[in-house]
Amino acid sequence: MSDALSTEFIGRQKAWLRPAHLTRFALIALGLAFLSFFLFLPLAAVFAEAARRGFPAYLAALSEPDATSAIKLTLFVAAIAVPINIVTGVAAAWAVARFRFFGRNLLVSLIDLPFSVSPVIAGLIYVLLFGAQGYFGPYLRSHGIQIIFAVPGIVLATIFVTFPFVARELIPHMESLGSAEEEAALTLGASPWKMFWTVSVPNVKWSLLYGVLLCNARAMGEFGAVAVVSGKIRGMTTTMPLHVEILYNEYNGPAAFAVASLLAALSLVTLGLKTLLEWRYADSLAARRKH
C-alpha cells in the first residue's frame, strides 16, 4: 500500500514539475526563433549568396589564381601552426597535469591568455616586434628577413590565437585519468618514450583529436590577427578569410560568398566531427564539459 502511495506521490510530483505545455511550447519557439535569426539565417545566407550566380560562376570564383593561392596559403599556415601547437600543447599538458610545482596555476593562466586577448592585439604585438618600425625591424631588414606583411608573420599570429586549444582539452582529461597507468608502465620496465607513446598518448587520443579539430578550425578561419600582419598582398599574403574580405570590399559579393562557403563548410564539418566525438566519447571528454 505504501508502495502504491509513493508511486502515486512521485507521479503527482512529476506532473507538478512539468510546466504547462503552453509555456514549454512558447519557450522552445522563442529559442528557435532566436537561433534562426542569429545562427541559421546567417549560415543560410552564406550558401544562398554563393549560389546566386549559378554553379559555373561559383566554380570560377574558387578556381581563379588569387583564390587558389589563398586556399593554398591557408592550408600551408595551418599545416605549420597546428603541429607546433600539438607539440607545445602536449608538452604543456604533461608538465601541468602530471607534476606539482611552484607557479603551476600561473602557467595555466598564461597558457589560456591568448583567448582573452583581442585578435587585433595578437597581430599588433608582432608588428611592434618585427614591423618596419618595430624593435627588431632594422635588424631584420639589414639581414633581408621579412616577417610582417609576409607568411612568417601570418604563421606567428595564427600560432598565437590557437595556442591554448590543445593544452586546454588535454589538461582536464589527463588530470581525471591520473598517472597510475603510466607509473605501472615504468615499473614494468618501459622506457619513458615507450610509456609516453603506448600509454599516455593512446589514453588521451580523443581529447587530443578534439583539441586539434578546434585548433585547426580557428587556424584556417582566423581573420583579425592575420589581417593586421598580412599586408593583404593579393595572391601572396592573403589567406582565405582575407581573400573574402578583399572580394567583399570590391563589391564582388558572389565571389566573396563562394570562398566564404568553403570556410562555412569547413566549420560545419568541424562542428559535426566535434559533436560526434562528444556523443561517442562522452566519458573521455566529460572532464571538459564539466569544467
Partner: peptide, 8 residues
C-alpha cells in the same frame, strides 16, 4: 559561432 570564421 565558435566554429564559423568571424569574417564569414
Amino acid at each position: 559561432p565558435f566554429a564559423l570564421p568571424t569574417a564569414v
